[in-house]
Amino acid sequence: MTTLATAPRARTAAASSARPGAHLAADVWTMVRRCVLLVSRDVDSLVMGVALPVMLMVVFVYVFGGAIQAGLDGTTYLNYVTPGIVLLCAGFGAANTALAVQQDVAGGIVDRFRSMPVTAWTLLVGHVVASVVKNLVTTGVVVGVAYLMGFRPDATLAEWLGAVGIIVLWVVAITWAATFVGVVVRSVDAASAATFVMLFVPYVSSAFVPPQTMPALLRGFAEHQPVTPVIETIRGLLTGTELGTSPVLAVVWCVGIATVFAVLAGVVFGRRRHRAG
């Protein structure tokens, strides 16, 4: 081994600044870069993230679709169900983020970050941004497959942008919820169990069947849970169904969920250093 110039030496003025905000933007960017790289190397979950929604779409459209179609008027079931599949796909991506955060927290790397002059929650932001990037890719593939199957949205460019915007908002919201789960739970199993909810909740919404067909109790839940306004907004923008108050509700839900869980995750993550480890 060659000799090593490790001699401690004075750092540049910029580097030795103790102001917490001095390197915030650079730290966030480094964390985002790391998390995106990690996601891109996790081929298994990427394949799964695309394959699962595509298989679900095939099952819903070609297996259940015929029966469900009878209860729909004016649109094809494929047009009806595609936005729901996109959200399901986002839920799957968020579940993976919970696992990634849990692994970071359980492993040694968080301790290294915390022992460096880096603001700790930039790591969480890195995971959330990586999740958004990943979901945009998988959503693109899902919509592409839907198109091949006959999905024909009649949206203008502005409507497309709006739909993408609401999908991103939703992904940010549930990814923050998943990040909170990842920070709180102590094991991979617990993270999987907790995120199961994210995969299940879309089923009791207007994602796959109109809530009017459900029993009163479920229908009440389906009509007032956050997935439904998000779905109705995407559906309205892409396929021209009635929008109503859905966009407003969707944005309020997404921003609310994102804010609450981002704050909770940040607080719990920041507090961990007082605990055993």
Partner: peptide, 14 residues
């Protein structure tokens, strides 16, 4: 944190 480095028991690499 600006002057230390710590290498713990569990590897802090990806």
């Amino acid at each position: 944190r600006e002057v230390i480095s710590v290498t713990g028991q569990s590897a802090a690499v990806d």
